[in-house]
Design a protein around this nucleic acid. Structure first.
Length: 304
DNA sequence: AACAAACGCAACCGCATCAAG
DNA sequence: CCTTGATGCGGTTGCGTTTGT
């Protein structure tokens, strides 16, 4: 420890319990700021950045450590990423107890999962499927490989799809098993029609129509409960804008809404360079269900 | 049981932004 | 106005654990 406090020495790697305690003491005394002084005053041989990161990601109160993302959290991340892109810190403000690192890791793992699935060599059934977009191909993969399923399996293969009818966003449930036909030979012949099968709209939610006349999708209030710890107050953004207007000028807003309606703002897990989705009729139904832990079941009542 | 692949997570790095001097 | 240090954010990496074969 003596050596670690020598001038110029910077410790890296995993944090020890003792280091955590020192950092916590500092935060209790001075608040979550002046990170650089922790090193300059000789408390820890860690950089200010490292101290801040440790606090934000592990030591901060009310963190959901060690529990998987819930279905609702998963849904929110997907929605927010569609809206904001890779703005993990912003997305994290809507998920109480989750850090930007959590969200980033979650998304990254799902993206890797998708990438791996796309790289899998096609099966016997799929080798005949040429000239299709990879995402559609993957869905076809899912369809063709899915065995006849029991009723409880059906539930696991439900997924969301959204599209737009005018200014109304339509949520649809896609049951991937519905796309499975028992006759594989027939499926091979016309799988394209199978993957483009129309789903029945189960309910709609109003969107893009705000009282102010601006057309913005309305997002839920961010859920943050930091005020339990006064010293964490500065972690709370000064203003919450549930309608996410602040970052856009009028032109960008117009482009944003336009892209939503055209479907170009759809979640592509960062693969858009290669796998452009061009119509609003493909959203989650273009993602294999395996890449997400949960598939949302449609609520029975219409959203308000 | 052994090995490889996949997964989850913690932490580092580089860059951008902002404020103080 | 410029420089510099502090801070915040997103991308990436490394490693231990879990899962599949």
């Amino acid at each position: 420890m003596e050596r670690e406090l020598e001038r110029g020495y910077v410790k890296k790697g995993p944090w020890s319990r003792e280091e955590d305690e020192v950092l916590l003491r500092h935060v209790r005394k001075y608040g979550p700021r002046e990170w650089s002084s922790i090193r300059s005053k000789g408390f820890l041989p860690r950089t200010g950045k490292s101290c801040r990161l440790r606090w934000v990601n592990k030591l901060r109160p009310n963190l959901k450590t060690g529990c998987k993302f819930s279905a609702e959290e998963e849904r929110l991340v997907i929605e927010m990423q569609t809206q904001f892109g890779n703005k993990w810190a912003k997305i994290a403000t809507y998920l109480p107890g989750r850090t930007d690192n959590d969200v980033k890791n979650f998304w990254s793992s799902r993206r890797k999962r998708l990438e791996r699935m796309l790289q899998k060599p096609p099966t016997l059934k799929l080798q005949k499927s040429k000239g299709k977009t990879p995402l559609t191909q993957v869905l076809a993969d899912k369809v063709f490989q899915a065995p006849p399923c029991s009723s409880n399996q059906v539930e696991e293969n439900l997924c969301y799809s959204t599209s737009y009818m005018g200014n109304t966003e339509v949520f649809e449930m896609i049951n991937l098993q519905d796309l499975v036909k028992p006759n594989y030979e027939q499926m091979e012949n016309d799988y394209l029609s199978a993957v483009e099968v129309e789903a029945t709209p189960l309910h709609t939610v109003p969107s893009f129509e705000s009282s102010s006349g601006n057309n913005f999708p309305v997002l839920p209030e961010p859920l943050i409960d930091f005020p339990l710890f006064p010293e964490c107050q500065d972690l709370v953004p000064e203003t919450f804008d549930p309608n996410f207007i602040d970052g856009f000028d009028e032109k960008k807003c117009s482009e944003f809404v336009c892209s939503q309606k055209l479907g170009t703002g759809l979640p592509t897990l960062g693969l858009e360079e290669n796998y452009q989705i061009t119509t609003s009729n493909v959203l989650f139904k273009d993602f294999p269900s395996e890449i997400f832990e949960y598939f949302e079941q449609i609520p029975t009542s219409t959203k308000q």
